[in-house]
Computed example of a mutant assay.
Amino acid sequence: MHSELQEAYGFLFEKELLEEINKFGSLRTAKAGEKIIEIGDFVKGMPLLLKGAIKILREDSDGDELLLYFIERGDTCAMTLSCCLGETRSEIRAVAETDTSFIMVPISKMEEWTAKYKSWRNFVFESYHSRLSEMLEAIDTIAFLNMDERLMKYLRDKAKINRDENIYSTHQQIAYDMHTSRVVISRLLKKLELEKKISLQRNHIKVIDL
């Protein structure tokens, strides 16, 4: 675990903090599509991503999901941190976008490191800032972009997160993430294909206009 930790976070944290994370953190893995945190769970630790990507979702009163943002290697989820420190139930769902490995940091150490290590404090504050910016961007996208523009942004973001221009999500999965219907997504994908921004293949979508 230490070499992966060094590679992902060595440029952020001092040697002593890396050694403590390696000692007290627990290594976890999740397959693509696996739920890591469920809405309503008591969160007992904060994930530090070593490999892969996780998508963070909210759910409305009807059970429909809305994608808030992705987190990648070297990131953490500030909303998870908030739940940990406040000892409240999770208001988000975290799902592995790809096969993922991460270190779960226990609550007690998070508080201790905030007082002990400047690099940890900076990391936490920067994580809050980054996630807040991404949530504001998600709000702006919903409020100000047409649905086809929202869909194209979603496809570009997904391709960049996966580092692959080919997206293997079904039309229904995309509809869930975007809080709309499969029929709408299928119609808009056809429109984007006619505009030569994407190519619809038998089992995937190729993003041309990255």
Rank of each mutant, 00 (worst) to 15 (best):
T100V: 14
I71S: 00
G86I: 04
A96S: 14
D75G: 08
D75F: 08
R93Y: 05
I71F: 03
F70I: 05
S90F: 03
R93G: 00
L81E: 11
F70W: 15
T80H: 10
T98Y: 10
T98K: 09
A78H: 04
F70M: 13
C77I: 13
G74M: 07
L81Q: 03
T76R: 10
E72A: 10
E72V: 13
C77W: 05
T98V: 14
I92W: 01
S90I: 08
E97S: 11
T80Q: 15
D99Y: 09
S82P: 00
S82R: 05
S90N: 11
T88L: 14
C84G: 10
D99P: 11
T98N: 10
R73L: 13
E91N: 09
G86P: 01
Y69V: 00
R73D: 15
S90G: 07
S90R: 08
A78E: 05
C83N: 13
R73A: 15
Y69C: 03
R93L: 07
I92C: 00
Y69A: 01
I71K: 04
T98G: 06
R93T: 03
C83W: 01
D75Y: 05
C77P: 03
I71Q: 01
R89S: 04
A94Y: 01
L85W: 13
M79N: 03
A78W: 04
D75T: 13
E97F: 06
Y69M: 03
R89L: 02
I71Y: 00
C84W: 02
C77Y: 02
A94S: 05
F70Y: 15
T100L: 14
T98W: 03
T98E: 11
D75S: 12
A78F: 11
Y69D: 00
A94H: 02
C83A: 13
A78N: 07
C83K: 01
A94D: 10
I92R: 00
E91Y: 05
L81I: 06
S82E: 06
G74W: 06
E91F: 04
R89G: 02
G86Y: 13
R93F: 01
A78S: 14
E97R: 04
T98P: 09
V95G: 01
L85S: 01
T88N: 08
M79F: 12
E72M: 14
M79I: 11
E87A: 10
E72G: 15
I92F: 06
T100S: 14
D99G: 09
A78L: 01
A78Y: 10
D75P: 07
S82M: 12
T98D: 14
T76Q: 08
L81D: 08
S82V: 00
L85E: 11
E87P: 00
R93S: 09
G74C: 04
E87I: 15
A96R: 03
T100F: 09
T80V: 13
